[in-house]
Nucleic acid binder design. Sequence first.
DNA 1: CTGCTTTTGATTATCATTTTCAATTTATCG
DNA 2: CGATAAATTGAAAATGATAATCAAAAGCAG
Lengths: 143, 143
Amino acid sequence: MIQDKKNAFNKFAAGKGLRSTRQRDCILNVFLSTHQHVSVEELYLKVKACCPGVGQATVYRTLKLFVEAGLAREVLLHDGQTRYEHVQAGEHHDHLVCTGCNAIIEFENETIEKLQDQIAERHGFMIRSHKLEIYGLCADCRS
Amino acid sequence: MIQDKKNAFNKFAAGKGLRSTRQRDCILNVFLSTHQHVSVEELYLKVKACCPGVGQATVYRTLKLFVEAGLAREVLLHDGQTRYEHVQAGEHHDHLVCTGCNAIIEFENETIEKLQDQIAERHGFMIRSHKLEIYGLCADCRS
DNA sequence: CTGCTTTTGATTATCATTTTCAATTTATCG
DNA sequence: CGATAAATTGAAAATGATAATCAAAAGCAG
Ligand SMILES: [Mn+2]
Ligand SMILES: [Mn+2]
Ligand SMILES: [Zn+2]
Ligand SMILES: [Zn+2]
């Protein structure tokens, strides 16, 4: 599955005439080996651990490429930092965000998605994307 | 109704030992006379029109007070600017955001809210707040 | 290899928001 | 009414995340 994503990115890169570089390989490896919802800073530190010379600018640039290639999705919660998560084809989910421990719980709800479609239709609105974030305290932080 | 909000703020201010100032009066007046979803910059310009000496720092500070007092709510869409909207007691709504013309359409959906409660309960999660934003093109921008 | 183009990374710039801090203003009390 | 202590203000500087610059380095087709 990791190899699939690497292939997907290589294909995307080939199609765009992008060159293959040590930096991008490293950032892709680190991203693919990473858990959900990484901040750019977190990723940058991990990348430096294996390729010390890589600059943050390159990490920022490369993450945007991953989004373009369909490997990653931007997640903007309310801590002022852009995070990136893995995208698997045809899947969508939303987030419960714990303000106590910063944990993120993912959920899917088909009914909510359908209701959104109805609302949009009622207003003649064409949906491109949406975000639903529920903030509060997770089970652990409630005690 | 405008007077109600002024009274509400004065009550809040009294309870917190805040002093009454020309600046805050002016900012409150301007905010109350303003349409939904104003950015700080927009508000700042309007404030300067009637009280030329007021600084932005004061506008930023005062808006946070309004939120604390329950008069206003922060709305963070994805244009990098914090906006503020009026809050009326016991009311909640979410947003359709047009990426073409920046129009914002408000909607309420009790079913979605209930489904959110169910999801939270299922995860032992205690909801404090949530945001649902649907991005896309409004009827006008689709043509 | 050569020459051309992309990529990189250090540095600088942006831009919204926050902090600082000295000067001003407000509320309180004698 | 002053005097005093505390809160408020506004100009300017600081912050912090991200974007833009640009000269040097690297990748690639011929
Ligand atoms: Mn997620
Ligand atoms: Mn609104
Ligand atoms: Zn938690
Ligand atoms: Zn529109």
